[in-house]
Amino acid sequence: MNPGKAIQNKINGVKQNFADYKKLDSKDKKTYWKEFLLNNALYILLIVAIIYTYIQNSNFLSAASIVNIISLSAANLPIACGIAGCIVLTGTDLSAGRVVGLTACITASLMQSVTYATKMFPNLPVLPIPLVILIVLLVGGIVGWVNGFFVAKFQLHPFIVTLATQLIVYGLLLMYIMINGNNGQPLSGLDQHFNDVVKGSVVSFNAGGARIAIPNYVWLAAVIVIIMWFIWNKTTFGKNMFAVGSNPEAAKVSGVNVMRTTILVHTLAGAMYGLTGFIESSRIGSNTANTGLNYECDAIAACVIGGVSFVGGTGKISGVVLGVFLLRIIFVALNFLSINMNMQYVIKGLIILVACAIDMRKYLVRK
């Protein structure tokens, strides 16, 4: 569709909605605004929180802070895009964070500098970056395939399957970081070229007398988002995913291979977790068994905030991106307000609870 025509169609849609609103009587208008406020309560609270934080600390919306928010969001976009597909299928993935941790530690161990004193594999040269990406994609994809196979083949609930693989992957991670006498020590001392490629910068600008750099992994995340948008919206696989999420029985009758689609969605999700681990290994710089801990919680919250519904068959990549940014803005705001870390976990849990409640309410109203 022509971009100009698409914009014009949206404008016409807004005009039509306004015309329909004007035809409502006073009682219906009150109901309309009540529904609007309830359905968008989380967004309204987020906006209020942003304004309040800026009033308390004007540095919150400085150029450096905005770039920091973008960078932190970009690091979490791949895992959110992956887990969103599982949610579209009315499931979830509790193993995501541990897969990120495993692939981050694998990446770090393969990309340690040859001169690093406690290199895990002392006789192994620094591997080519494309090969390492292929390895983490494969590792993440295998875990995702296992999740999808057990969900599709044995009709097990994704919560149970991914809880089991979460424990399995964590056990494998603990064993991996003990290899060659590493004894669980942090995997650091990464090759400088690797760090330059991932968290180095080819784009920077001056703001307030300081040079602010945009990390390269932001552009990698942007490419991943574009690819995922294409898969969701322009491929038969994407259409099948939404069909299975909406009604698996109807999709099966329509000729969709439900088992194959379910397995592929989880495999793709696992690959996205692998890419997240690849980015995190360099971004963190010192990887341990705790790398990736609770990442799935942030990703699930971002997806629900972005409109990916747990009732299945509903969601957009643009919504996932929006959800990731909004959630990251809140977490950065909490730090600017010096909120205790323990309290941040409480707030994070409340955000997930409220987002899911609003999502279910929308579903019940439609039903």
Rank of each mutant, 00 (worst) to 15 (best):
I51T: 04
S62Y: 14
Q8G: 00
P3N: 09
P3R: 15
F154H: 08
N180F: 14
V346L: 05
A74R: 07
M343C: 04
I142H: 08
I11D: 07
C86R: 06
V88P: 04
A243I: 07
I329R: 03
G255L: 10
N206R: 13
I227F: 12
T162V: 10
M241P: 00
L326R: 01
V321C: 05
T235E: 02
V14L: 08
I44D: 04
R361F: 12
A302N: 08
A108F: 11
I135C: 01
A80D: 03
Q8P: 01
G292T: 03
G274L: 04
M111A: 06
V256K: 14
K239D: 05
I351G: 01
L46I: 15
E280N: 11
Y363Q: 14
R98Y: 13
A357W: 15
N123T: 11
S73G: 03
N9S: 11
I214Q: 04
F18D: 06
I160Q: 10
N340D: 15
N9R: 15
I212N: 07
Q192L: 12
V161P: 03
F331N: 14
K316D: 11
I227A: 08
H193R: 12
D28R: 14
M175D: 13
G189Q: 02
L327Q: 02
G140H: 07
S338C: 05
L326E: 01
I160F: 10
L326P: 01
G209D: 11
G307E: 13
I347E: 03
E296A: 04
I7R: 08
I142W: 12
P158V: 05
A333L: 08
N68W: 03
T31S: 09
L61H: 09
F205M: 10
G189A: 02
N59V: 09
N40G: 05
A64R: 15
G315F: 02
A222C: 05
R211T: 15
N180C: 05
M343D: 07
Q16G: 02
V100I: 13
C297H: 12
Y32I: 04
L102I: 12
N195I: 06
T291E: 05
G319Q: 04
G200I: 03
K22F: 11
F149Y: 15
S71Q: 13
A207S: 13
W229Q: 10
K119D: 11
T314W: 01
K5G: 01
P248Y: 09
S318D: 02
V308E: 09
W232R: 07
V308M: 07
V136M: 04
L264F: 12
L326W: 08
D25S: 10
Q16N: 10
F36M: 01
Y32H: 14
L353N: 05
S65A: 10
T236M: 02
G319R: 13
D196L: 09
I329M: 10
F336M: 08
A117Q: 15
R211C: 02
L61T: 09
L190F: 05
L24K: 12
G274A: 03
